[in-house]
Design a protein around this nucleic acid. Structure first.
Lengths: 218, 218
DNA sequence: TCCCAACCGGAGGGGTGCCTCACCTATTCC
DNA sequence: GGAATAGGTGAGGCACCCCTCCGGTTGGGA
């Protein structure tokens, strides 16, 4: 990992500074415009030439990871706390509220949650971890008889997609609108209300492929 | 409307033919790539020069309208039948199923339903009509005590947004996945044992603005 | 202090898309 | 059949974006 090490800690001070400026600009640009933000804009906002951006972060994914990994790890960490709450339903709801709040505050985060990047083992690990957390919380709520038994992880990911879209639509005019949709949807998830659903959940493969498809947007 | 008339019925036969080819290409391209599809691609697919496209349809909206208006009017017409079904809940569900199926089959239609185009009175009229139909069906289901009273038209539009995103994600891998989400959501809409929701619905203005925001995508 | 490896800048090639306009073509109408 | 004119063409200007490469700059170890 000579590459990665060099990128992580440039020898010269000026290089380290520029790298930090790039990261700051990237975070704010990704937050405002999603993971497909223009790299040239990021370099411009950082007050740095485009070549410098590419020297520090040879690919978009390198920059994305450097910008988001700390935040994502932090989220994954905080989540374990919530997961330990006594009431299984409460833990499930709190986890989703936290997740969606993070989604609502950052379009990059929003995009990131909805997609998968098969070329990047690091992000795949993070996604696996997220799915694992959600799956456990859901299973716990189902075992307690509070969540209906016929929903799966794929349904929650579907909700994440929904939420992403709702956030995109309402970010400027009603930034908390996503909460309403979440809580309506939670009524659908409650065991007491369950009606049969005429369509099976996505299989694991379908789910994975769909997330990948979202990355190769037009 | 000299402009519009001339566009609608060109004097020369070859012009009429080219116009038809453009419309066909536009319909298929919008269906595949959404309302932001490349006009140059459409011209290319129609076997016609870009200048010809602009001669017939000076703005993207002109082309969009010419391509979609018949289909939209047809949908609005068919919908009145469904709306007359005896069971109010059934009518509500059938209407949404039809709407979402149309959304699922055409990305342009999908985009169109989620957005509003304030500059175009024609599309505004269509959107108003759609909202009116949905509002009436919802009110009827609520009056019959079958739909919970605390949801509004804005919640259904929110569902349309959700659905659009789910379709984008699953079109290639599970083209009927949207039905599952719709029917889960319907469980949330049922009046029986509704739980209070911690966030008010969007106001009419918020809803409108949010739909407009989706049109000025980045 | 001095030098060189590490670093930076930004022009430039390649691509896509929007839209216009001057010049040419072909249909239609007399 | 021949003009008048509606209509077609596509190069080209402009604005983005991605990414590379090489000549010039500079920090910091010797």
């Amino acid at each position: 990992m000579t590459e990665a090490d060099r990128a992580r800690a440039p020898r010269r001070r000026d290089a380290r500074e520029r790298r930090d400026k790039l990261l700051a600009a990237a975070r704010s640009e990704f937050a405002a415009r999603g993971v497909d933000a223009s790299l040239e804009r990021i370099a411009r906002n950082a007050g740095v030439a485009i070549g410098t951006l590419y020297r520090h972060f040879p690919t978009r994914m390198d920059l994305l990871l450097a910008a988001f990994e700390p935040r994502l790890q932090e989220f994954l960490g905080d989540a374990t706390e919530v997961a330990e709450l006594d009431d299984p339903w409460d833990a499930f709801v709190r986890y989703l509220e936290n997740l969606f709040r993070a989604q609502a505050g950052d379009r990059g985060f929003n995009d990131f949650l909805s997609r998968r990047f098969p070329g990047s083992p690091e992000t795949e690990r993070i996604h696996d971890e997220l799915c694992h957390q959600i799956g456990r919380l859901l299973a716990r709520a189902q075992d307690a008889g509070e969540a209906r038994p016929d929903i799966t992880l794929a349904d929650i990911v579907t909700l994440i997609w929904s939420n992403g879209r709702i956030i995109d639509a309402t970010a400027a005019t009603a930034p908390d609108a996503w909460r309403r949709h979440l809580h309506l949807m939670l009524d659908a998830y409650r065991a007491e209300r369950a009606h049969p659903v005429p369509e099976p959940p996505l299989t694991e493969k379908q789910l994975y492929d769909a997330m990948v498809d979202l990355s190769k947007a037009d």
